[in-house]
């Protein structure tokens, strides 16, 4: 009969009307500034730089290898490496800018970073009134501590720390072996990594050490269980090459 479909429809809306007063399933609105959803661990917004220790700038894991700058699809990263008095690069970024208005949060920089130094943040309220200044994040703004990284992504950060510790241990073993072989060279090598904070990879040795770690778990992947992390090997960073220094 004409109208039966309309009546069925009216019944559905009535059900939803009543349901919206008692059934959370039918009123899923979260009133945002007062209430917030807990973000899933995988949630990503914009990149930030991880530093170890106390000093934000000195502790940066970044060695200004420019790998992320080269791979960034919208080209929103800008890096100038630090140089010492003689003009040699010292494996620190002097300038590390990310234009957040251009960044599309694809996390390819995270995947390609061989030093676990750039990670995706979870801060999404980055609105600014000034498009030119307010949305270009500088080195100081980007640097966030490893503790913070542990807060936002506990699983992933723990994995990264384990891996870095492992790499460091291997590097040290290698350095010791080298020291035993060549006393003079060893003395020099031991003296080299001095200003770097405790858990940071010894920047000089990291590229050499990386191939030594056979199964490097996925950089960005919070792997479900440690057991599968070896099988779920890294897509990008399986074998990080020595940093390509592009001018």
């Amino acid at each position: 009969m004409l109208g039966s479909g309309i009546i069925k429809g009216l019944a559905v809306t009535a059900k939803n009307f009543v349901g919206s007063f008692h059934d959370p399933e039918r009123l899923p609105t979260v009133e945002y500034p007062e209430k917030r959803l807990t973000l899933p661990e995988a949630y990503r917004s914009f990149p930030f730089l991880v530093f170890d220790g106390e000093n934000a700038i000195d502790g940066l894991r970044c060695v200004a290898c420019k790998m992320c700058e080269n791979e960034c699809p919208p080209q929103c990263i800008y890096i100038i490496p630090e140089r010492d008095e003689k003009g040699r690069p010292v494996k620190k970024p002097k300038v590390f800018d990310i234009d957040l208005s251009v960044c599309m949060g694809c996390q390819i920089c995270v995947e390609v970073c061989p030093f676990d130094s750039i990670k995706m943040d979870q801060v999404f309220e980055v609105a600014a009134t000034n498009r030119f200044e307010g949305l270009i994040a500088h080195r100081e703004m980007l640097a966030k501590s490893n503790t913070y990284y542990h807060q936002i992504r506990p699983t992933e950060a723990a994995e990264v720390d384990t891996r870095l510790a492992e790499e460091k241990r291997l590097a040290e073993e290698k350095a010791k072996a080298a020291a035993a072989a060549k006393a003079a060279a060893a003395a020099k090598a031991a003296a080299a990594p001095k200003p770097v904070a405790t858990t940071a990879p010894a920047s000089a040795t990291a590229p050499a050490a990386a191939p030594a770690s056979p199964a490097k778990p996925a950089v960005a992947a919070p792997s479900p269980s440690p057991s599968s992390s070896s099988s779920a090997a890294a897509p990008m960073a399986a074998a990080p090459k020595p940093p390509a220094t592009t001018p």
Binding site: T13, G19, L27, T29, E31
Partner: peptide, 13 residues
């Protein structure tokens, strides 16, 4: 408000 409730949202508040 009512339209909101029919549509599973709270409406202007």
């Amino acid at each position: 408000k009512f339209l909101g409730r029919f549509q599973n949202r709270p409406g202007p508040n």
